[in-house]
């Protein structure tokens, strides 16, 4: 059980912080880096609340070790709008009532930002994201709104 220094570029900012060997990336983001937008629902890969982009690819941050992210690039829900207002996905979720308690929302927003412009199916985007509140109707309406919308990926 040892501690090591982990340096990541998260949402464009280089952050260096200690982590235990057994700390997950999700815990490191939340506790080590105080980026609490990333949620942990299950810790076992089932719910998708913790999804972040690791070198541009969606991963469950609960299933990656913090040390494995050393030297790599991470995008979390805090960064998807790129310092701007809200992403198109976030606005669509609000307008279509795609969230209630909001626990599942960060992972979904990251996933939707990644899917934007890539033409994945609705089922593909939703796969691995569990929502206890909405029954998915509002989320699917938001996805339809996005795919019907013109241009841009935000």
């Amino acid at each position: 059980m040892s501690v090591r220094t982990v340096t990541v570029r998260v949402n464009g900012v280089v952050r260096t912080e200690d982590a235990w060997d057994h700390t997950t990336l999700a815990e490191h983001l939340r506790t080590g880096l105080r980026l609490t937008g990333t949620h942990v629902g299950c810790g076992t890969g089932d719910c998708g609340a913790c999804v972040v982009l690791l070198d541009g690819e969606p991963v469950c941050s609960c299933l990656v070790l913090a040390v494995q992210a050393d030297g790599r690039e991470i995008s979390t829900v805090e960064g998807v709008a790129g310092g701007g207002d809200l992403t198109r996905a976030q606005r669509a979720l609000i307008e279509e009532h795609g969230l209630q308690c909001g626990f599942c929302t960060p992972g979904l927003v990251v996933r939707m930002a990644h899917a934007a412009g890539r033409g994945g199916s609705e089922a593909d985007v939703l796969a691995g994201h569990l929502c206890r509140c909405t029954g998915y109707d509002g989320i699917r309406a938001a996805l339809r709104k996005l795919s019907g919308g013109s241009g841009g990926d935000r």
Binding site: D21, H22, T24, Q68
Partner: peptide, 11 residues
């Protein structure tokens, strides 16, 4: 959830 403590090495 916190994993059980272990050491890590990356050969």
């Amino acid at each position: 959830m916190t994993a059980v403590a272990f050491d890590y090495t990356a050969p």
